[in-house]
Design a protein around this nucleic acid. Structure first.
Length: 850
RNA sequence: GGGUGAUUAGCUCAGUUGGCUAGAGCAUCUCGUUUACACCGAGAGGGUCGGGGGUUCGAGUCCCUCAUCACCCACCA
């Protein structure tokens, strides 16, 4: 025996992977229909988590399966510099070392982080190999590669020239800890228990007061108006008058604006255009001045001296205390509201005025929405399409500037003498450039990472002139995590249409989050993170892959379940042992080209193979990974191992066994690439043959009538086993009146049912089987068999119930008239069979009763 | 405030256009060492498909409603 008793993944995986790479198995074949997937680039600097494991499992199953269909397959691997994410990690490291980002110039920081990431990048590439991913590594792309940066610049330039990108001073979501702005979508909103403070604002003319309600009293120092609804009778007379703002004594107008909700609070709103997006818009409509009272460091500035330099929270307390002292604070209410936080450090996001680059997204969104509505892209799950459309419809302009060092520098320069004069230029290594006799200074900011990754589907394959682009675009599938539908998928679609005039991919498959076993989100802080590489080491790469997809359903979050990995490990071992057995039986006889099914079992297993292969292919074509795996599992374990191989032990059909093994290895390959290739290489049935590039072919023909007859064998075996168990007998003989079917299958039945023999006899005494159309009986004394009467009577009851139900159905005129003829016939057929069965049971019962 | 998904066996989940007695894996229990495999084999038990209503000859599946849970979006001062 060449193979050891259990499959030891770690002994084979590395060398098998090396073999694949050396053989060129992962390269596009250049023949057949193009099929392409570009990997969502994982953060090059981070450790893999289960999400990566799932992503690669799904993508690699698709990729390997499409290779097996004979397609021209391109799988592009990549890695992400992950701008802000990595920046945060690096900054933490600096802090641990007692340094800070302020100790270095941006250029120095960029260089340091580049080296820092470079060290970790190899780590993740190795881990992808351990997971069995089969990309063409020659195509490896890093998000800071020249071609990606150039593409980002080309897009920026096009948008800049066409007026799709503009520079403006607007309110930006700003994290005062990290010192950078964010796009709307990056802000993490949280429900918080806060307060609604009612503050008296006295009229300047002394004729009374207004009461405003606010959750952020500290911003009152930047108020430039009080607004009421134009239809609010309570305040109609006051519109046009002015307020004397408490604490600062600044005079501000009372104005009417539709935005104000009469029902909320007091119906009067303080307007702080520099620190609230709604107020900003009111300010624009009414031409109000902008007074910034919070700095980018989160301190109060441009305020009366006694508040200056305080943090927002300190200032709030101080101001409230003063308002109270001076009798301006009318009341304090509890109030829950949603507050934006930095998703990394949890600092409250401040809307701050800042000049940034924005993309005018609605025109881009419009095109995307059109294509989505026309179903030009297929979604799995389908429901995500409408969600995406809704999102795009409400999308506001996208802030793409980030004030961090780690990222792609924005290729824009500002005239030092004219702050409104911005030009595009890609000489980003220069801080100062001269153009047409004017001096320009580079924008110190970098792009939002998502800006460059929006071009990922075509930038990676060399748009516009590369051969890959011409062959493989649009991509076949974009497979990624459901939670980046908005930040990434939406933008790839918008950018793809804008830049290439085509949808970037034909289908989108979104997978859900893998939570911990209790349904909690996995996170470092909770300490419930599972490292996929640990699991690969524990159970094998294939077991990890099969286990992780065995519950997969598009778009659905689901808990991690280690027992699935154990089950998959056992399945891998089952396949291993099937191989050991077949190899042992075959010896040197490995011919398998011509299958000649002889027995009912032979025909039956070929029919099962055909059904299973068809089902697996259909399931994979429709992204039903768990179903496909399940079909494979049951074909291999139940049909092949438990029935066919056991049946074949009496008289093995060697070419057929060899044929079945090869077929199974091919079918199982996308699910268990290492195991199947290891087996294939160990068998060495063909020289220089790599399983990974073999294609799925039509299965061998069989006779379906004979295949069906194996069902009788199974029925007889099952009943004999049941009787023997019930009566605790063994060594019995099955007798029949020279029936050819039983003669033909006697060896198999004897073996599977653990009989002493199958013999010909004249209708004799003993227990007659009731579950088969063939008359046969066991040589067990009726007296002894009486013990079996209970089982028989249970069986009788069950049959009676079935008959009653079927008869009832057929007695229902409406059913017979309205149900399709096929269904009604089926019911009649069932009734006939049930009656035959019950009469056989009754005959037996009478014999015991005597 | 808006949206999406979920609710099926003890646990984790399938159940594709409504149609055999609702399935699987794990767990539990019984029996078993038989030319690969105890990471095994043969079996068994376990479900009023979240509640209520409706459509239909027929509903886990379609419609309405209620409840619970989860997630996402949102500029409610």
């Amino acid at each position: 025996m060449k193979l050891p008793k259990t499959y030891q993944p770690s002994e084979h995986e590395d060398s098998i992977y090396a073999l694949w790479e050396k053989s060129g198995a992962f390269q596009p074949s250049g023949k057949g229909k193009p099929y392409s997937i570009v990997m969502p680039p994982p953060n090059a600097n981070a450790n893999l988590h289960l999400g990566h494991g799932l992503t690669l499992a799904i993508e690699d199953i698709l990729i390997r399966y499409h290779r097996q269909k004979g397609e021209n397959v391109l799988f592009v691997p990549g890695a992400d510099h992950a701008g802000f994410e990595t920046w945060v990690v690096y900054e933490k490291k600096l802090v641990q070392e007692g340094k800070s980002r302020f100790d270095f110039s941006r250029e120095e920081l960029y260089k340091q982080i580049w080296d820092f990431v470079a060290k970790n990048k190899d780590n993740y590439e190795r881990q992808f190999r351990q997971l069995g991913a089969s990309p063409d590594w020659r195509h490896y792309v890093y998000t800071l590669d020249d071609k990606i940066v150039k593409r980002a610049y080309a897009t920026f330039k096009k948008m800049f020239k066409e007026g799709r990108i503009y520079r403006a001073e607007k309110l930006v979501n700003f994290c005062t800890y990290h010192g950078t702005g964010f796009a709307d979508i990056e802000v993490a909103h949280k429900e918080e228990q806060g307060h609604l403070w009612h503050i008296r604002y006295p009229l300047t003319d002394g004729s009374g007061e207004m009461v405003v309600a606010t959750t952020r009293p500290e911003t009152m120092l930047g108020d430039t108006a009080v607004a009421v609804n134009p239809g609010d009778k309570r305040y109609a007379k006051l519109v046009g008058k002015t307020i004397k703002l408490p604490l600062t004594h600044r005079e501000i107008p009372i104005l009417a604006d539709d935005f104000v909700d009469m029902e909320f609070g007091t119906g009067a709103v303080k307007v702080t255009p520099a620190h609230d997006p709604n107020d900003f818009e009111i300010g624009q409509r009414h031409d109000l001045p902008l007074i910034s009272v919070i700095s980018h460091e989160g301190k109060l500035v441009d305020v009366p001296e006694n508040y200056r330099g305080m943090s927002v929270e300190e200032g709030r307390q101080k101001i409230l205390a003063h308002l109270k002292e001076q009798g301006f604070l009318l009341k304090t209410e509890k109030h829950t509201h949603s507050v934006g936080h930095c998703y990394k450090c949890d600092t409250v996001i401040q809307p701050l005025l800042r000049e940034q680059w924005f993309i005018d997204v609605q025109p881009l969104a419009k095109r995307a929405i059109e294509q989505l509505k026309n179903k030009k892209i297929v979604f799995h799950p389908e429901s995500k399409r409408d969600q995406l459309i809704k999102y795009l419809e409400g999308l506001r302009d996208w802030n793409i500037s980030r004030q961090i060092a780690w990222g792609i520098p924005i290729p824009a320069f500002q005239n030092v003498d004219d702050s409104d004069d911005w030009i595009y230029d890609d000489r980003v290594k220069e801080e100062i450039i001269e153009v047409e006799g004017k001096t320009y200074r580079r924008d110190p900011d970098v792009f939002d990472t998502w800006f460059s990754s929006s071009s990922w589907p075509y930038a990676t394959i060399d748009y516009p002139d590369g051969d890959d682009f011409k062959t493989f675009y649009p991509l076949s599938v974009m497979e990624t995590a459901a939670d980046i539908l908005y930040p990434w998928v939406s933008r790839m679609i918008m950018f793809g249409l804008y830049v290439t005039d085509e949808i970037p991919f034909r289908e989108v498959y979104l997978h859900g989050l893998i939570q911990d076993e209790h349904g909690q989100k996995m996170s470092k802080s909770k300490g419930n993170v599972v490292n996929p590489i640990d699991k690969v080491k524990e159970y094998g790469s294939d077991a990890f892959r099969m286990g992780i997809i065995s519950d997969e359903s598009a778009g659905k979050n689901r808990p991690y379940d280690e027992s699935k990995l154990v089950g998959a490990r056992n399945f891998a071992n089952k396949l291993w042992n099937i191989t050991r057995y077949i190899e042992d039986v075959l010896g040197d006889e490995t011919a398998r080209e011509e299958t000649k099914p002889n027995t009912a079992a032979d025909h039956w297993i070929l029919s099962k193979l055909q059904q299973s292969q068809k089902k697996i292919c259909q399931d994979l074509d429709s992204y039903r990974f768990a179903e496909a795996y399940n079909t494979l599992y049951h074909f291999v374990w139940d049909d092949l191992a438990d029935w066919y191989i056991e049946a074949s032990k009496t008289d093995p059909n060697k070419p057929l066994l060899a044929y079945l093994l090869e077929k199974v290895l091919i079918l199982a390959h996308p699910f268990a690439p290492f195991l199947t290739e290891t087996i294939w290489q160990t068998l060495a049935w063909e020289n220089e043959s790599v399983l990974a590039v073999r294609v799925i072919k039509e299965t061998s023909p069989f006779d379906s009538k004979q295949a069906e007859e194996f069902g009788e064998v199974q029925a007889i075996v099952a009943e004999v086993r049941a009787i023997q168990r019930a009566l605790k007998v063994s060594g019995v003989t099955l007798q029949h009146d020279n029936i050819s079917f039983l003669n033909n299958n006697s060896g198999v039945i004897k073996r599977l049912a653990r009989l002493k023999s199958v013999a010909i006899a004249k209708k004799g005494s003993g227990i007659q089987l009731t579950g088969t159309k063939h008359a046969c009986w066991l040589n067990i004394e009726v007296s002894q068999a009486r013990k079996y009467a209970k089982e028989l009577s249970d069986k009788h009851e069950r049959q009676k119930a079935i008959i009653k139900q079927l008869e009832g159905r057929l007695a229902n005129k409406n059913y017979v008239e309205n149900a399709p003829g096929k269904i009604v016939d089926q019911t009649r057929q069932q009734l006939t069979e049930a009656k035959e069965l019950i009469s056989a049971i009754e005959t037996e019962q009478k014999r015991y009763a005597s």
